[in-house]
Computed example of a mutant assay.
Amino acid sequence: MSAEGLERQTRNYMSNNVPQIQQHGGNFEVRDVDEAAGTATVAIGGACSGCGIAPMTMKAIERQLPESVDGLDDVEVVRSSGPRAAVMPSKTDEMEDMDEYEDYSPPF
């Protein structure tokens, strides 16, 4: 499979299985796909950045995406920068460290 195929599968997974991101005013982009390494970087931003469950969503994507896309072994989810940057980055940083988020399983 080509990197484009892996990227397309990653994008399709995000569009089809994580619709809450877009329904809630957030956005995502597939930033980088390395076919040989089986890795991808996905950035989320917009309303996701200030959302209380964004850290949980990020962890869930990192866990579920490799299980759903053939050839993908590791996913890193990062926050978008620039115009899509965090609304409240300090709050989001604090949330990522909260123990409550370790076992959260979002509804997707």
Rank of each mutant, 00 (worst) to 15 (best):
L72A: 06
L72D: 05
L72Y: 05
L72V: 06
D73H: 07
D73V: 06
D74G: 08
D74R: 14
V75D: 00
V75P: 00
E76I: 02
E76V: 03
E76H: 01
V78H: 13
V78P: 11
V78M: 14
V78T: 15
R79S: 12
R79T: 10
S80F: 02
S80P: 02
S80L: 04
S81N: 13
S81H: 09
S81D: 15
S81T: 15
S81V: 11
S81E: 14
G82Y: 14
G82M: 11
P83S: 13
P83C: 11
P83W: 09
P83N: 12
R84K: 04
R84Y: 01
R84Q: 01
A86M: 05
V87T: 15
V87A: 14
V87G: 15
V87N: 14
M88F: 03
M88C: 04
P89F: 06
S90T: 09
S90Q: 12
S90K: 11
S90C: 06
K91M: 04
K91D: 05
K91S: 04
T92H: 10
T92G: 09
T92L: 13
D93T: 09
D93Q: 11
D93S: 10
D93E: 13
E94N: 04
E94F: 02
E94G: 03
E94A: 04
M95Q: 06
E96A: 10
D97N: 07
D97M: 07
D97R: 07
D97Y: 06
M98E: 12
M98F: 08
M98R: 10
D99N: 03
D99Y: 02
D99I: 02
E100Y: 08
E100R: 10
E100I: 12
Y101I: 13
Y101R: 09
E102T: 15
Y104S: 03
Y104P: 00
Y104W: 05
Y104E: 04
Y104H: 03
S105A: 07
S105P: 05
S105C: 06
P106V: 15
P106L: 13
P106R: 07
P107T: 12
P107F: 14
P107L: 15
P107N: 13
